[in-house]
């Protein structure tokens, strides 16, 4: 089962390598991982999308928590949450027809065209993984995908619940 884990940890050199090392050392899965400092520069926040059964997930959460740098970890998928991922994608837009089609698909998915080259449009889209997958597939059916990059997902709990020190 797919899970999204949010981790708050000390923004120290090497903290990220401990997290990544732990996952590889114990053969845990990483689907995506994002990291950045928080508004408090002494803290980093990591979002990891992973998968595994309940037993594996319990170990992942416990093992991450055991790292000295980690302050808190929570499984966002346990309750209602917001999940977002950013996609930047370059697609071929050589003629009128394909330009119109790219624009139309982008509008339908509520993305935006953020850069235009002679033959290439660059589109930005945010959403959950499923939406991004659908967009890439649709776009791929209409025109050629030149390059794409995904941020990996970030997430936050809905409502009053917050992950903070």
């Amino acid at each position: 089962m797919r899970r999204i884990l949010a981790i708050l940890l000390e923004n120290e050199p090497g903290s990220l390598s401990r997290i990544v090392g732990l996952f590889s050392q114990r053969a845990f899965n990483i689907e995506s991982l994002t990291v950045a400092p928080t508004e408090d520069a002494s803290l980093s926040r990591i979002t990891i999308a992973t998968s595994g059964d309940d037993r594996v997930l319990e170990q992942i959460v416990k093992q991450v928590n055991k790292l000295i740098d980690v302050i808190k970890i929570t499984d966002l998928t346990e309750r209602s949450h917001i999940e977002r991922e950013l996609l930047l994608i370059k697609v071929l837009a050589m003629n009128e027809k394909s330009r119109t089609e790219v624009k139309r698909i982008t509008d339908i998915f509520r993305g935006s065209i953020v850069d235009i080259g002679k033959q290439i449009y660059t589109v930005q889209l945010t959403g959950n993984a499923e939406k991004l997958n659908a967009f890439i597939e649709t776009m791929g059916n209409e025109t050629e995908i030149i390059e794409s990059v995904r941020s990996g997902c970030v997430g936050i709990a809905r409502g009053e619940k917050a992950l903070r020190v």
Binding site: P13, G14, S17, R18, G21, Q25, L67, I68, D69
Partner: peptide
Amino acid sequence: IVGCSRPVVKHSFN
């Protein structure tokens, strides 16, 4: 050495 020892330490400091 911090990298080499990472999987076998409780913690390490640079």
